[in-house]
Write a protein that binds this DNA or RNA. Structure first.
Lengths: 142, 142
DNA sequence: GCCGTTTCTTGACTCATTCCAGATTCTGGA
DNA sequence: TCCAGAATCTGGAATGAGTCAAGAAACGGC
Protein backbone atom coordinates (compact mmCIF):
# COMPACT_ATOMS: atom_id res chain seq x y z
CA UNK A 1 0.00 0.00 0.00
CA UNK A 2 1.34 3.45 -0.81
CA UNK A 3 2.46 5.57 2.11
CA UNK A 4 1.17 9.10 2.47
CA UNK A 5 4.42 10.43 1.05
CA UNK A 6 3.73 8.54 -2.18
CA UNK A 7 0.48 10.43 -2.56
CA UNK A 8 2.37 13.67 -2.00
CA UNK A 9 4.66 12.76 -4.87
CA UNK A 10 1.73 11.80 -7.07
CA UNK A 11 0.09 15.16 -6.46
CA UNK A 12 3.34 17.04 -7.07
CA UNK A 13 3.92 15.14 -10.28
CA UNK A 14 0.48 16.16 -11.43
CA UNK A 15 1.23 19.82 -10.61
CA UNK A 16 -1.48 19.82 -7.97
CA UNK A 17 -1.23 21.43 -4.58
CA UNK A 18 -0.89 19.06 -1.67
CA UNK A 19 -3.77 19.57 0.72
CA UNK A 20 -5.03 17.45 3.55
CA UNK A 21 -8.42 16.81 1.92
CA UNK A 22 -6.66 15.59 -1.22
CA UNK A 23 -4.39 13.25 0.68
CA UNK A 24 -7.33 11.95 2.67
CA UNK A 25 -9.36 11.33 -0.49
CA UNK A 26 -6.45 9.55 -2.19
CA UNK A 27 -6.00 7.36 0.89
CA UNK A 28 -9.71 6.64 1.09
CA UNK A 29 -9.94 5.64 -2.57
CA UNK A 30 -6.85 3.44 -2.31
CA UNK A 31 -8.13 1.72 0.83
CA UNK A 32 -11.72 1.33 -0.36
CA UNK A 33 -11.78 0.54 -4.07
CA UNK A 34 -15.14 1.14 -5.77
CA UNK A 35 -16.40 3.32 -2.94
CA UNK A 36 -19.13 5.77 -3.86
CA UNK A 37 -18.84 9.49 -3.20
CA UNK A 38 -20.89 9.37 -0.04
CA UNK A 39 -18.73 6.65 1.48
CA UNK A 40 -15.61 8.57 0.59
CA UNK A 41 -17.01 11.64 2.32
CA UNK A 42 -17.61 9.52 5.42
CA UNK A 43 -14.12 8.03 5.37
CA UNK A 44 -12.48 11.39 4.84
CA UNK A 45 -14.45 12.90 7.71
CA UNK A 46 -13.48 10.05 10.00
CA UNK A 47 -9.90 10.90 9.13
CA UNK A 48 -9.86 14.68 9.14
CA UNK A 49 -12.94 15.76 11.02
CA UNK A 50 -15.45 17.98 9.29
CA UNK A 51 -14.91 18.34 5.55
CA UNK A 52 -17.52 19.76 3.22
CA UNK A 53 -19.03 17.40 0.69
CA UNK A 54 -18.32 20.05 -1.88
CA UNK A 55 -14.60 19.76 -1.21
CA UNK A 56 -14.73 16.01 -1.71
CA UNK A 57 -16.67 16.36 -4.95
CA UNK A 58 -14.18 18.95 -6.13
CA UNK A 59 -11.14 16.90 -5.13
CA UNK A 60 -12.52 13.83 -6.85
CA UNK A 61 -13.11 15.79 -10.02
CA UNK A 62 -9.59 17.22 -9.96
CA UNK A 63 -7.99 13.86 -9.26
CA UNK A 64 -10.04 12.25 -12.00
CA UNK A 65 -8.99 14.96 -14.43
CA UNK A 66 -5.36 14.51 -13.48
CA UNK A 67 -5.63 10.76 -13.95
CA UNK A 68 -4.81 9.86 -10.34
CA UNK A 69 -8.13 8.13 -9.81
CA UNK A 70 -10.65 6.68 -12.21
CA UNK A 71 -14.35 7.30 -12.04
CA UNK A 72 -16.61 4.37 -12.80
CA UNK A 73 -20.36 4.55 -12.98
CA UNK A 74 -22.28 1.44 -14.00
CA UNK A 75 -25.80 2.15 -15.22
CA UNK A 76 -28.18 2.80 -12.38
CA UNK A 77 -25.41 3.31 -9.87
CA UNK A 78 -23.88 6.39 -8.36
CA UNK A 79 -20.32 7.39 -9.22
CA UNK A 80 -17.59 5.22 -7.76
CA UNK A 81 -13.86 5.68 -7.73
CA UNK A 82 -10.75 3.54 -7.80
CA UNK A 83 -7.03 4.22 -7.90
CA UNK A 84 -5.83 0.99 -9.51
CA UNK A 85 -4.90 2.48 -12.84
CA UNK A 86 -1.70 0.85 -14.04
CA UNK A 87 -3.17 -2.47 -15.10
CA UNK A 88 -5.87 -2.47 -17.71
CA UNK A 89 -8.51 -4.25 -15.67
CA UNK A 90 -12.26 -4.39 -16.03
CA UNK A 91 -15.24 -4.81 -13.77
CA UNK A 92 -17.78 -7.41 -12.84
CA UNK A 93 -21.01 -5.88 -11.54
CA UNK A 94 -23.76 -7.76 -9.74
CA UNK A 95 -27.19 -6.78 -11.03
CA UNK A 96 -28.79 -7.62 -7.69
CA UNK A 97 -26.56 -6.16 -4.98
CA UNK A 98 -24.39 -3.85 -7.07
CA UNK A 99 -21.09 -5.16 -5.80
CA UNK A 100 -18.14 -4.50 -8.10
CA UNK A 101 -15.17 -6.83 -8.53
CA UNK A 102 -12.04 -6.31 -10.56
CA UNK A 103 -11.20 -8.67 -13.40
CA UNK A 104 -7.92 -8.76 -15.15
CA UNK A 105 -8.18 -8.15 -18.84
CA UNK A 106 -8.56 -11.45 -20.62
CA UNK A 107 -6.33 -10.84 -23.55
CA UNK A 108 -3.35 -8.82 -22.44
CA UNK A 109 -2.47 -5.22 -21.94
CA UNK A 110 -4.76 -2.97 -23.97
CA UNK A 111 -6.51 -5.43 -26.23
CA UNK A 112 -10.00 -4.12 -26.08
CA UNK A 113 -8.87 -0.75 -27.32
CA UNK A 114 -9.25 -2.04 -30.84
CA UNK A 115 -12.73 -1.48 -32.16
CA UNK A 116 -13.67 -3.08 -35.44
CA UNK A 117 -14.46 0.33 -36.92
CA UNK A 118 -13.64 3.52 -35.08
CA UNK A 119 -15.93 5.77 -37.17
CA UNK A 120 -13.16 8.36 -37.22
CA UNK A 121 -13.06 8.62 -33.44
CA UNK A 122 -9.84 9.06 -31.52
CA UNK A 123 -10.27 6.33 -28.97
CA UNK A 124 -8.30 6.64 -25.73
CA UNK A 125 -9.96 4.09 -23.49
CA UNK A 126 -12.03 0.95 -23.68
CA UNK A 127 -14.22 0.22 -20.71
CA UNK A 128 -15.58 -3.25 -20.22
CA UNK A 129 -18.33 -4.09 -17.75
CA UNK A 130 -19.48 -7.66 -17.20
CA UNK A 131 -23.03 -7.83 -15.85
CA UNK A 132 -24.35 -10.77 -13.91
CA UNK A 133 -25.04 -12.11 -10.45
CA UNK A 134 -22.46 -12.51 -7.74
CA UNK A 135 -22.17 -15.91 -5.99
CA UNK A 136 -24.27 -14.77 -3.01
CA UNK A 137 -27.09 -13.31 -5.07
CA UNK A 138 -27.26 -16.18 -7.55
CA UNK A 139 -27.88 -18.65 -4.72
CA UNK A 140 -30.38 -16.45 -2.86
CA UNK A 141 -32.50 -15.88 -5.95
CA UNK A 142 -34.77 -18.85 -6.55
CA UNK B 1 -37.84 -0.77 -40.01
CA UNK B 2 -40.50 -2.56 -37.99
CA UNK B 3 -44.11 -1.62 -38.59
CA UNK B 4 -46.39 -0.81 -35.69
CA UNK B 5 -47.84 -4.28 -35.86
CA UNK B 6 -44.40 -5.72 -35.18
CA UNK B 7 -44.30 -3.78 -31.94
CA UNK B 8 -47.70 -5.18 -31.05
CA UNK B 9 -46.33 -8.66 -31.51
CA UNK B 10 -43.25 -7.85 -29.47
CA UNK B 11 -45.40 -6.63 -26.61
CA UNK B 12 -47.69 -9.64 -26.82
CA UNK B 13 -44.72 -11.98 -26.83
CA UNK B 14 -43.46 -10.33 -23.69
CA UNK B 15 -46.87 -10.77 -22.04
CA UNK B 16 -47.33 -7.02 -21.87
CA UNK B 17 -50.51 -5.15 -22.57
CA UNK B 18 -50.58 -3.23 -25.80
CA UNK B 19 -51.11 0.44 -25.09
CA UNK B 20 -50.63 3.47 -27.28
CA UNK B 21 -47.94 5.01 -25.08
CA UNK B 22 -45.99 1.79 -25.26
CA UNK B 23 -46.23 1.62 -29.01
CA UNK B 24 -45.23 5.26 -29.27
CA UNK B 25 -42.24 4.73 -27.01
CA UNK B 26 -41.13 1.66 -28.95
CA UNK B 27 -41.42 3.61 -32.18
CA UNK B 28 -39.54 6.58 -30.75
CA UNK B 29 -36.69 4.41 -29.47
CA UNK B 30 -36.44 2.56 -32.76
CA UNK B 31 -36.42 5.79 -34.77
CA UNK B 32 -34.05 7.67 -32.50
CA UNK B 33 -31.38 5.34 -31.17
CA UNK B 34 -29.53 6.60 -28.07
CA UNK B 35 -32.21 9.18 -27.33
CA UNK B 36 -32.41 10.30 -23.73
CA UNK B 37 -35.60 10.12 -21.72
CA UNK B 38 -36.47 13.75 -22.23
CA UNK B 39 -36.18 13.49 -26.00
CA UNK B 40 -38.32 10.38 -25.95
CA UNK B 41 -40.98 12.22 -23.98
CA UNK B 42 -40.93 14.96 -26.62
CA UNK B 43 -41.19 12.53 -29.50
CA UNK B 44 -44.00 10.60 -27.88
CA UNK B 45 -45.89 13.81 -27.19
CA UNK B 46 -45.48 14.94 -30.79
CA UNK B 47 -47.02 11.62 -31.75
CA UNK B 48 -49.81 11.19 -29.24
CA UNK B 49 -50.43 14.61 -27.77
CA UNK B 50 -50.07 15.06 -24.04
CA UNK B 51 -48.51 12.13 -22.25
CA UNK B 52 -47.22 12.34 -18.70
CA UNK B 53 -43.49 12.01 -18.19
CA UNK B 54 -44.31 9.46 -15.54
CA UNK B 55 -45.96 7.23 -18.14
CA UNK B 56 -42.87 7.38 -20.33
CA UNK B 57 -40.53 6.61 -17.44
CA UNK B 58 -42.72 3.72 -16.43
CA UNK B 59 -43.01 2.35 -19.95
CA UNK B 60 -39.26 2.57 -20.43
CA UNK B 61 -38.68 0.68 -17.22
CA UNK B 62 -41.15 -2.03 -18.18
CA UNK B 63 -39.73 -2.36 -21.68
CA UNK B 64 -36.21 -2.50 -20.29
CA UNK B 65 -37.21 -5.18 -17.83
CA UNK B 66 -38.87 -7.18 -20.59
CA UNK B 67 -35.78 -6.87 -22.74
CA UNK B 68 -37.47 -5.00 -25.58
CA UNK B 69 -35.19 -1.99 -25.21
CA UNK B 70 -31.80 -1.62 -23.65
CA UNK B 71 -30.86 1.16 -21.28
CA UNK B 72 -27.40 2.61 -21.64
CA UNK B 73 -25.91 5.23 -19.39
CA UNK B 74 -22.32 6.29 -19.95
CA UNK B 75 -20.71 7.99 -16.96
CA UNK B 76 -21.89 11.54 -16.56
CA UNK B 77 -24.75 11.14 -18.99
CA UNK B 78 -28.46 10.72 -18.47
CA UNK B 79 -30.11 7.41 -19.32
CA UNK B 80 -30.42 6.62 -23.02
CA UNK B 81 -32.29 3.85 -24.75
CA UNK B 82 -31.92 1.76 -27.86
CA UNK B 83 -33.83 -1.11 -29.39
CA UNK B 84 -31.09 -2.69 -31.45
CA UNK B 85 -30.70 -5.81 -29.33
CA UNK B 86 -30.15 -8.76 -31.62
CA UNK B 87 -26.57 -8.06 -32.58
CA UNK B 88 -23.99 -7.84 -29.85
CA UNK B 89 -22.79 -4.33 -30.60
CA UNK B 90 -20.97 -1.83 -28.47
CA UNK B 91 -20.70 1.95 -28.20
CA UNK B 92 -18.31 4.72 -29.02
CA UNK B 93 -18.84 7.75 -26.80
CA UNK B 94 -17.36 11.19 -27.44
CA UNK B 95 -15.94 12.69 -24.25
CA UNK B 96 -16.57 16.20 -25.55
CA UNK B 97 -20.05 16.26 -27.07
CA UNK B 98 -21.42 13.01 -25.70
CA UNK B 99 -22.55 11.63 -29.03
CA UNK B 100 -22.95 7.85 -29.10
CA UNK B 101 -22.21 5.67 -32.12
CA UNK B 102 -22.72 1.94 -32.53
CA UNK B 103 -19.78 -0.33 -33.24
CA UNK B 104 -20.06 -3.89 -34.28
CA UNK B 105 -18.31 -6.27 -31.95
CA UNK B 106 -14.78 -6.80 -33.12
CA UNK B 107 -14.47 -10.49 -32.60
CA UNK B 108 -17.75 -12.14 -33.40
CA UNK B 109 -20.99 -12.86 -31.68
CA UNK B 110 -20.57 -12.88 -27.92
CA UNK B 111 -16.83 -12.90 -27.54
CA UNK B 112 -16.42 -10.40 -24.79
CA UNK B 113 -18.63 -12.47 -22.55
CA UNK B 114 -15.58 -14.45 -21.54
CA UNK B 115 -13.80 -12.89 -18.61
CA UNK B 116 -10.45 -14.26 -17.58
CA UNK B 117 -11.79 -15.08 -14.12
CA UNK B 118 -15.46 -14.78 -13.32
CA UNK B 119 -15.02 -14.80 -9.50
CA UNK B 120 -18.00 -17.13 -9.27
CA UNK B 121 -20.32 -14.66 -10.99
CA UNK B 122 -23.02 -15.74 -13.38
CA UNK B 123 -22.27 -13.37 -16.24
CA UNK B 124 -25.07 -12.62 -18.67
CA UNK B 125 -23.80 -9.60 -20.54
CA UNK B 126 -20.59 -7.86 -21.42
CA UNK B 127 -20.84 -4.16 -22.11
CA UNK B 128 -18.04 -2.38 -23.92
CA UNK B 129 -17.73 1.39 -24.12
CA UNK B 130 -15.01 3.02 -26.16
CA UNK B 131 -14.18 6.53 -24.96
CA UNK B 132 -12.59 9.15 -27.15
CA UNK B 133 -13.29 12.12 -29.36
CA UNK B 134 -15.57 12.13 -32.36
CA UNK B 135 -14.20 13.48 -35.66
CA UNK B 136 -15.83 16.89 -35.16
CA UNK B 137 -14.59 17.40 -31.61
CA UNK B 138 -11.06 16.18 -32.27
CA UNK B 139 -10.59 18.80 -34.98
CA UNK B 140 -12.22 21.63 -33.00
CA UNK B 141 -10.07 21.02 -29.92
CA UNK B 142 -6.64 22.60 -30.30
C1' DG C 1 7.20 35.04 7.38
C1' DC C 2 4.49 37.36 3.24
C1' DC C 3 1.60 37.47 -0.80
C1' DG C 4 -0.89 35.88 -4.78
C1' DT C 5 -3.26 32.02 -6.29
C1' DT C 6 -5.61 27.97 -5.54
C1' DT C 7 -8.62 25.43 -2.70
C1' DC C 8 -12.20 24.81 0.92
C1' DT C 9 -16.60 26.23 3.28
C1' DT C 10 -21.35 27.34 3.39
C1' DG C 11 -25.73 27.20 1.66
C1' DA C 12 -28.79 27.39 -1.90
C1' DC C 13 -30.08 25.29 -6.12
C1' DT C 14 -30.79 22.20 -10.43
C1' DC C 15 -32.62 18.41 -12.55
C1' DA C 16 -33.20 13.42 -13.60
C1' DT C 17 -35.74 10.09 -11.57
C1' DT C 18 -38.97 8.03 -8.30
C1' DC C 19 -42.98 7.79 -5.15
C1' DC C 20 -47.85 8.20 -4.12
C1' DA C 21 -52.91 7.95 -4.48
C1' DG C 22 -56.63 8.13 -7.19
C1' DA C 23 -58.74 7.79 -11.87
C1' DT C 24 -58.62 5.36 -16.14
C1' DT C 25 -57.93 1.75 -19.43
C1' DC C 26 -56.98 -2.89 -21.02
C1' DT C 27 -57.36 -8.08 -21.28
C1' DG C 28 -59.45 -12.56 -20.98
C1' DG C 29 -63.42 -15.15 -19.94
C1' DA C 30 -68.61 -15.61 -19.88
C1' DT D 1 -70.35 -7.87 -26.51
C1' DC D 2 -69.95 -7.04 -21.53
C1' DC D 3 -67.80 -7.50 -16.82
C1' DA D 4 -64.54 -7.88 -13.27
C1' DG D 5 -59.98 -7.71 -11.98
C1' DA D 6 -55.63 -6.13 -12.79
C1' DA D 7 -52.48 -3.26 -14.79
C1' DT D 8 -51.58 1.38 -16.34
C1' DC D 9 -51.78 6.44 -16.49
C1' DT D 10 -52.17 11.16 -14.34
C1' DG D 11 -50.52 15.03 -11.67
C1' DG D 12 -48.10 16.63 -8.08
C1' DA D 13 -44.77 16.25 -4.70
C1' DA D 14 -40.46 14.28 -2.99
C1' DT D 15 -35.77 12.38 -3.26
C1' DG D 16 -30.96 12.73 -3.80
C1' DA D 17 -26.70 13.03 -6.47
C1' DG D 18 -24.30 16.54 -8.12
C1' DT D 19 -23.41 21.73 -9.23
C1' DC D 20 -22.97 26.92 -8.69
C1' DA D 21 -21.35 31.07 -6.45
C1' DA D 22 -19.00 34.08 -3.20
C1' DG D 23 -16.23 34.70 0.54
C1' DA D 24 -12.66 32.57 3.89
C1' DA D 25 -8.64 29.76 4.48
C1' DA D 26 -4.56 27.22 3.10
C1' DC D 27 -0.60 26.23 0.03
C1' DG D 28 3.94 27.19 -1.83
C1' DG D 29 7.32 30.16 -3.99
C1' DC D 30 9.80 34.34 -2.69
Amino acid sequence: MPATSDFVLELRDARLRVTRPRLAVLTAVADHPHADTDSIIGIVRADLGEVSHQAVYDVLRVLTGAGLVRRIQPSGSVARYESQLADNHHHLVCRACGVIVDVQCAVGLTPCLTASDDHGFTIDEAEVVYWGLCPDCSTHVS
